[in-house]
């Protein structure tokens, strides 16, 4: 699917160019995102994969400029539907957020307001962004709750978040995200807090809805199984940088960065050979406050050379739709 979209030559819906984000912390300046470039086409699901501290969540939050007072976008451009989001004023940005770009977070409990009814929370963005009356917005809220398969949506309008299970709360979050027909949905570990059978329901729902509406999706996850089932394209992050990106099939069949290779080999899968020792990546994920000068993966990499410890390899094309940031080991 992604190949077809890219081959059609349509411009990307979102194009991030050389984005860097840093934070003031107790331990000094920390660059959490370091020169990240990515793009997503309409109708496509891009997965951003990485471990803790890889910068995947900060990348997503920066797209919406939700990085707090201690954070700062140092450089880079975020082009969304032809507009540079970095140049928008606070008020203009608020019109994009929740309206044209919607976000779904990991914890549906802490993202919903516990003292407001579900109906009020789903209707609010419609009143705010689309100028609907409360009455019309409530009617639309019923449709949205039905669309995410919440049973008895009319009755549930007056329920509070604590009346809902974790899976149902995440459905409410998705209904809110869909309220204004966003062109891009960013889902940050949307099912990590949920049971596996509910995870399957929620991710299938998100996939079906993006198919229906033609919206693009950025799915942030650490779960390589989830990526394999739901993503069209994948960007792998490590130490604040994208180190490899390809279509999902190409990446799993043909991982080219030593970190991606190690990651794929270290995960037991329902189709792998049980009982044998798993392949491991030696060492620890990097500390963003204390990154090595060269490639962040070099201290754990079996192929690292002097070159790797001195400079950061740029992300370069190594095949159709396949990019890698590595000085090479072949």
């Amino acid at each position: 699917m992604s190949e077809a979209i890219a081959a059609s030559g349509a411009p990307a819906l979102l194009r991030v160019e050389n984005l860097s984000v840093r934070f003031r912390t107790d331990r000094g300046m920390v660059r959490a995102v370091d020169g990240v470039s990515l793009h997503v086409h309409a109708g496509e699901t891009l997965a951003i994969v990485g471990e803790s501290g890889s910068g995947k969540s900060v990348t997503a939050l920066s797209l919406l400029r939700l990085i707090g007072d201690n954070g700062e976008i140092e450089q880079g451009r975020i082009l969304f539907d032809g507009v540079d989001l970095g140049r928008l004023s606070g008020a203009e940005m608020r019109k994009v957020r929740g309206n044209r770009i919607a976000m779904i977070f990991q914890e549906p409990m802490s993202s919903l307001n516990p003292v407001l009814t579900i109906g009020k929370q789903v209707a609010e963005p419609l009143v705010l962004h689309q100028g609907l009356s409360w009455q019309a917005a409530r009617k639309r809220a019923v449709e949205l709750l039905a669309r995410v398969s919440i049973p008895d949506p009319v009755d549930r309008l007056d329920s509070y978040p604590h009346h809902f299970s974790g899976g149902m709360r995440q459905r409410v979050m998705i209904a809110m995200a869909l309220a204004c027909d966003p062109k891009l949905i960013i889902a940050d570990e949307p099912t990590t807090a949920l049971d596996v059978t509910v995870q399957a329901q929620i991710l299938a729902l998100l996939k079906a809805l993006t198919r229906e509406t033609g919206a693009a999706q950025i799915l942030i996850t650490h779960d390589l199984g989830v990526v394999a089932r739901y993503a069209d394209r994948v960007a792998v992050m490590y130490g604040g940088r994208v180190i490899e990106s390809a279509s999902a099939r190409e990446l799993y069949a043909n991982p080219k960065h030593p970190y991606t290779q190690g990651l794929m080999a270290s995960v037991p899968s329902l189709d792998s050979d049980p009982g044998r020792p798993l392949q491991t990546i030696p060492g620890q994920p990097p500390d963003l406050a204390n990154l090595p000068p060269g490639c962040a993966f070099a201290p754990r990499c079996a192929y690292a050379r002097d070159l790797c410890r001195q400079g950061k390899p740029p992300l370069e094309s190594i095949g159709p739709q396949h990019e890698r940031a590595c000085y090479g080991y072949e």
């Binding site: 399957a200 990526v227 394999a228 099939r249 995960v267 329902l270």
Partner: peptide
Amino acid sequence: AVPVANPEIEANRAQQIIKGEV
């Protein structure tokens, strides 16, 4: 419900998703 870390297998897997929650 558990996705396998292999897009080829996933594409060919019948995805019968169980209804409801615990």
